[in-house]
Design a protein around this nucleic acid. Structure first.
Length: 302
DNA sequence: GGGCCCGCAGGG
DNA sequence: CCCTGCGGGCCC
């Protein structure tokens, strides 16, 4: 079977999975066009000025929001407060800030600012004050906004599921329908090269099996059990494969839940296994803008 | 375009 | 200290 044939087969299987999971009915009716004005406004990178495009306020207080609650947006529960409804955002307004440990090496005092973060990224659900659709030029900016902490890694793992993931179109047989997509796990890459040709890479081609032993993959599998919301950013590298990928930079597309986790043979000639996950977007969020392509026509790559 | 090498976040 | 990880800048 050729690569293209296998790719088509995998994609067809994933589409059938969406039918079986009965998520196709969640497809939104309206799909606004991507606002290209944004990327012009934020074209200036390289400049050391910390502004992105007006989406992040200057940090004031650093607060920790407990990650043990059922975090869906603002209202959360914790076991200590079982039976009560607690709005932590309002609690913050009343100003009862707790210290946050960013580096684990030292505690920050209230009001002290480490990097540019206002909120701890180790929490489930939305980050306060960051709207769905917010755009950043780089992964570093996403990290500073607490939406997706790792600069490189596509998965931010937590004890009760992944906090966030980054969609970058790195796997050819993943499908992206906007409101739902499949996602491939991490691991199985040789980042250090060989003894004779050592390397110090951050990404590399698949060279071994992935598994749920991997911390990142395990977290996403756990997300299936807990159904905790996962923040999703889409990156420009997915364009050409997905019309929902931004033409530039990275965009926060809101909260999804992981419906299913499984292992299958990956789309590589060696047949290494990969971990796959099916994501579905939570309802009542702003529509995802589509990228008309405009310039690229190379969808038929082999 | 590709190759290289780096910083950083996070965890062990 | 060590390691990993669908970045990114630079040079060619």
């Amino acid at each position: 079977m050729t690569y293209a044939e296998e790719r088509e087969r995998n994609i067809a299987r994933n589409r059938q999975l969406f039918v079986d999971l009965d998520i196709d009915r969640l497809r939104p009716k309206y799909e606004p066009k991507e606002n290209t004005r944004k990327k012009v406004a934020a074209k200036k990178r390289r400049s050391p000025s910390p502004e992105s495009d007006g989406c992040d306020e200057p940090p004031k207080k650093i607060l920790r929001i407990p990650d043990d609650g059922n975090a869906l947006g603002g209202a959360r529960r914790s076991s200590r407060l079982a039976g009560r409804t607690v709005d932590y955002k309002r609690e913050q307004d009343r100003g009862v800030p707790e210290p946050i440990t960013v580096n684990r090496s030292r505690k920050l005092k209230v009001g002290e600012v480490k990097s540019k973060r206002t909120y701890d990224p180790h929490m489930y659900g939305h980050i306060p004050d960051v709207e769905v659709g917010t755009w950043w030029a780089t992964r570093q900016d996403c990290s500073n906004a607490s939406i997706h902490a790792p600069w490189v890694s596509g998965i931010a793992p937590g004890p009760n599921g992944a906090y966030s993931i980054a969609l970058s179109g790195g796997y050819d047989d993943d499908i992206d329908d906007g409101y739902a997509f499949t996602f491939t796990g991490s691991g199985g890459r040789d980042l250090r090269g060989t003894k004779t040709a050592p390397k110090n890479l951050r990404t590399a081609p698949q060279s071994s099996d992935q598994s749920f032993e991997d911390r990142n993959n395990a977290a996403l599998k756990r997300s299936v059990e807990t159904q905790k919301p996962v923040r999703v950013i889409r990156g420009f590298k997915g364009k050409g494969k997905s019309k929902y990928a931004p033409s530039e930079g990275y965009r926060y597309d809101g909260l999804y839940v992981v419906k299913k986790a499984w292992i299958e043979k990956g789309l590589n000639k060696e047949g290494f296994l990969v971990c796959k996950f099916a994501f579905v977007r939570l309802a009542e969020q702003p529509a995802i803008p589509v990228n008309d392509g405009g310039d690229d026509s190379d969808v038929a790559d082999e």
